[in-house]
Computed example of a mutant assay.
Amino acid sequence: MTLYPYSYAVLRAVPRVERGEFVNVGVIIYCQDLDFLRTAVHIDTGRIRALDHGANVELIEHAARAVLDACEQPVGSNRENSGLVIRFGMLTAPRSTVLQPSPVHVGLTSDPAATLDQLMRRLVLPPD
């Protein structure tokens, strides 16, 4: 079995940016050797509203959809489409918005799609 290095970041919903509280809502994973960039998202409205009962969940969902779209198809200017590594870097750059990436972490995988599923179960989805 061949192992490939990958990088990932957790997507965090931050309903009140000034408070800095967040709920994990997704994972972005990038594996350069396999030309793989994908995001998975699960938005738990109840958990978000527990931080802020007036949270704009539609705005968070819209921001998450933009990340999903950016991983699935070329978007924007030529600079943005110069490669998956550039796109991953842009998607994981620190920002102060309602959807923020965690710091980037690394690992090894033989199957990045399966690893994305494992990361979602471990870091985002509620426990069984």
Rank of each mutant, 00 (worst) to 15 (best):
C31P: 09
D33Q: 15
I48Y: 05
N56L: 03
E18I: 13
A55K: 05
E18A: 14
E18K: 11
I48V: 15
E58M: 01
F22G: 01
F22Q: 09
L51T: 13
L37E: 11
C31H: 03
H42D: 14
R47V: 12
V57P: 08
V57Q: 02
N56T: 06
Q32P: 08
N56G: 03
E61P: 07
G54D: 03
L51C: 10
E61F: 01
F22K: 05
E61N: 11
H53D: 09
T45E: 15
I48Q: 02
L51N: 10
D44H: 03
V27R: 00
L34C: 09
V27Y: 01
G46H: 07
I60Q: 02
E21D: 13
G54K: 00
E21C: 05
L37G: 12
E58Y: 00
D52R: 06
V23E: 02
E18N: 10
R38W: 05
I29K: 04
V57H: 02
N24C: 08
N24V: 10
C31D: 08
L34Y: 05
L51Q: 08
N24K: 08
C31K: 03
G54T: 03
R19W: 02
G46M: 06
L37D: 12
H62W: 10
R19I: 05
G46E: 14
G54Y: 00
D44Q: 05
I60K: 01
R38F: 04
G26M: 03
L59I: 05
D33P: 14
A55V: 12
A40F: 02
L51D: 09
T45A: 12
V27L: 07
E18Y: 06
E58I: 00
E58R: 05
G46T: 13
R49N: 07
Q32A: 15
V41R: 00
H62Y: 10
A63C: 14
Y30M: 07
V57T: 11
Q32R: 14
I43R: 03
E58Q: 05
H53Y: 01
E18C: 04
L51K: 09
V23D: 00
V23L: 01
F36N: 10
H62N: 12
V27S: 05
R47A: 15
V27M: 07
D44N: 12
V27N: 00
R38P: 07
A50I: 11
